[in-house]
């Protein structure tokens, strides 16, 4: 774990003050919000709710954080569980075929913007692995643990996710 995070955790646990929480929060909010936004398919208010719930659970359980994984991985795990809870309550039935059709009607922008749109439209499993691996830099071993899947599944999901992402990007290019 980076020393800074360890220091911030110790400081927060010693006093549990808003000031120390803010320091911890600011170190991790970018990665957490990025992941939450992709999980939530770009719905910012949902992403913010997931992040808020994640912090509440994290602070409630901070005493039990065993440091087997990094704090970032631990937080991301809580976030994914929160997202799973949300998914169970709100099923999304859009198919990839529908999404490809939808992408074909979009106009091409910069690659990273197209890419973002393409990722947001990927099916859940693909989107999760692609976000964690290609944007947040998690290893397949960590992703397997976070998503409760096998390492091989993470690799094949990434392969399929990139393939689908490229199909979606081709859809953008055809316009």
């Amino acid at each position: 774990m980076p020393k800074r995070t360890e220091e911030l955790l110790s400081q927060f646990l010693a006093e549990r003050s808003s000031e120390h929480f803010s320091l911890l929060y600011r170190q991790h909010i970018d990665g957490l919000m990025r992941t939450a936004t992709y999980l939530a398919k770009g719905k910012v208010s949902l992403a913010e709710d997931l992040v808020q719930e994640t912090w509440i659970v994290a602070i409630q359980r901070l005493d039990r954080f065993e440091r087997k994984a990094s704090f970032k991985t631990w937080l991301t795990g809580i976030l994914i569980n929160k997202f799973r809870e949300h998914q169970r309550k709100n099923r999304d039935t859009l198919t990839l075929a529908v999404l490809l059709q939808r992408a074909a009607t979009s106009t091409r922008q910069n690659l990273h913007i197209d890419l973002k749109n393409a990722i947001l439209q990927l099916p859940d499993g693909y989107r999760e692995v692609l976000t964690l691996h290609d944007i947040e830099g998690f290893k397949h071993k960590e992703i397997a643990r976070l998503l409760d899947i096998k390492e091989g599944t993470s690799k094949s999901q990434l392969f399929q996710a990139r393939k689908a992402m490229r199909q979606l990007l081709t859809g953008y290019k055809t316009e």
């Binding site: 006093e15 549990r16 003050s17 808003s18 000031e19 929480f21 803010s22 929060y25 600011r26 909010i29 913010e48 992040v51 808020q52 912090w55 509440i56 602070i59 409630q60």
Partner: peptide, 20 residues
Amino acid sequence: LEQKIIAALQKKALVKPSKN
């Protein structure tokens, strides 16, 4: 968002209000 989360944590007594 930061203030909203801090307020939610304070409401649950998970963090102490700012001394400053």
